[in-house]
Write a protein that binds this DNA or RNA. Sequence first.
DNA 1: TTGTACGCGTTATCAG
DNA 2: CTGATAACGCGTACAA
Lengths: 330, 330
Amino acid sequence: MSVTIKDVARVAGVSYSTVSKALNNSPLVKEKTKIKILQAAKQLGYQPNFAAKSLVSKKSSIIGVVWPTVERMAWSALATNINDALVKKSYNMLLSINPLASAISIFNQFRVDGILVFQEERTLLESTDIKSTVPILFYGESGSSHYPEINVNRRKAIFEAVRYLAEMGHRRIAYIGDLSHKEANQQEKLIGFSEGIMQFGLVSHPDMAVHVKKLSWEEGFRATKQLLQSSYRPTAIVSASYDLSAGIIRAVRDASLRIPIDISLISYDNIPQMAGLEIPLTAVGTPVDKLAENLVEALLKIIEHPDSIHPFDDIDIELNERASCGPPLK
Amino acid sequence: MSVTIKDVARVAGVSYSTVSKALNNSPLVKEKTKIKILQAAKQLGYQPNFAAKSLVSKKSSIIGVVWPTVERMAWSALATNINDALVKKSYNMLLSINPLASAISIFNQFRVDGILVFQEERTLLESTDIKSTVPILFYGESGSSHYPEINVNRRKAIFEAVRYLAEMGHRRIAYIGDLSHKEANQQEKLIGFSEGIMQFGLVSHPDMAVHVKKLSWEEGFRATKQLLQSSYRPTAIVSASYDLSAGIIRAVRDASLRIPIDISLISYDNIPQMAGLEIPLTAVGTPVDKLAENLVEALLKIIEHPDSIHPFDDIDIELNERASCGPPLK
DNA sequence: TTGTACGCGTTATCAG
DNA sequence: CTGATAACGCGTACAA
């Protein structure tokens, strides 16, 4: 049914091995015949067969990405950026939203060149022991030390956010985020906040940190209402995620407070969408495009040298000033 | 590097064709040797090579799904459900977030068994003429009539929502959604609303329909504030999407109105998450699980009979009563 | 019940 | 420059 190089060869009146060369732009083919072959190929609507190609070449030019069911904005943005970065390196990205073990199994059978795993919580992994011939890179907590992982330094990011506010003159800073100790990533952020408060000798208060069950805008909204009604009167808020921040803005405005005049807001998750909110948000974290490039680069490095050990540094964080922070009112 | 059936054969002390049979659970192999082979395979960590397999069998057991950049909740839910439905039929799903043309090209080279395209706006498609040997099914507007497509009857869905409210006694109903005529899907919803208003002889008012630029919660929030401040005093709201509704609820509650006592709310997008909102929302639309099953079923039908024409009916809609609608206050 | 041989669509190596 | 031909890993008739 589908057309092969042999069909193309027949139409072009050459042998199929010549077609193969022509299609791969080999210099061993005369320009004229090359053109003839290319025309025949186009005319027949030839599409190379990936399976055959990767069978012989042992390469697929595909990177498999394992994605837990994703709802958060920051992750969508990351996926898009990784895709772009991969295309730039002439790879293609395929996503699987299956459970980790089966996704990895599928990608292994496909003999993709590399696998990138987005891991939010680490609990899943520990039970099932992952077997993979294909190089894997974890983004987030891998849980097992068998595979290389890259993480961003969330602790430092939040710490820097606090520093930024403190240096601006803020003394009463609040934090809205996941206060439970279930997810290591979220815990890191909280620690960063605490460290900042202590380090810069800021005001402490029992209500200064508000817990959210999910990093969603609803929770951000709710938590902010709660915060503003408490006896703590913050002049600035540190938010643990983009989605959270979206809800925070709404709640703050509803309380007829102005950002950044009455209250400053700085958010984790350094994605371009921050600029598109009602108020362009000053944010801290690794810019997604850089993060994506780092991840891709690291993965390609692993692919090229699968055996050597790869101790990846945490990716550097940045603080992007926009319009949501200013000195406290008085 | 990676282990093949030949390696397994050597370890198990049989020929590799026997291994092949054993692995495919053929009855032509003695139980005892089968076990021996299976053990050897596991011990070596054997993973079948997809490329080789699909090369000879002309099947990949993979369905490629083309996804525009994902941000909306309802779509995430749909993807998850399709994945599940596919697994049930022993297929695997792989996602591509590349532009339509290149995604289809990749899937063609992979010789996936079928392609499912999520198409929100149709503008993209019309310029590039899609060529695909692999069967394609469009969900949404394909734009060209070359490929089969399935859609849900959004017009009817919204119409039924209006009917539901009307029969409950509501006379002043508002609509929050995309009022521009750019996207056919959104236009359909608006038409359904207008038809309902006319058919049931309800009150008309210039402010009864509020436009949102995006189907996001922010816009839902904003539009609702606007609606509640206008001179129109609706007793019920019809919302065009889940995300919108989330924002609507917040805005309504902020105005100290109670749902459903002071105001009723019914939403398009029939997804389980509706039940998880602050107020379990009565919703109309095709339940995602059914939608997913329908799509999968239709696609498999096309795969089996690629040549015949497939005029798919719109998928039926359902109205799920939850806790957000009641009779008007007086 | 097991093994042999061939072909799937490519690339790569050699001869011509 | 071009054309045979051998792999690649697997399924499957067919032979043993």
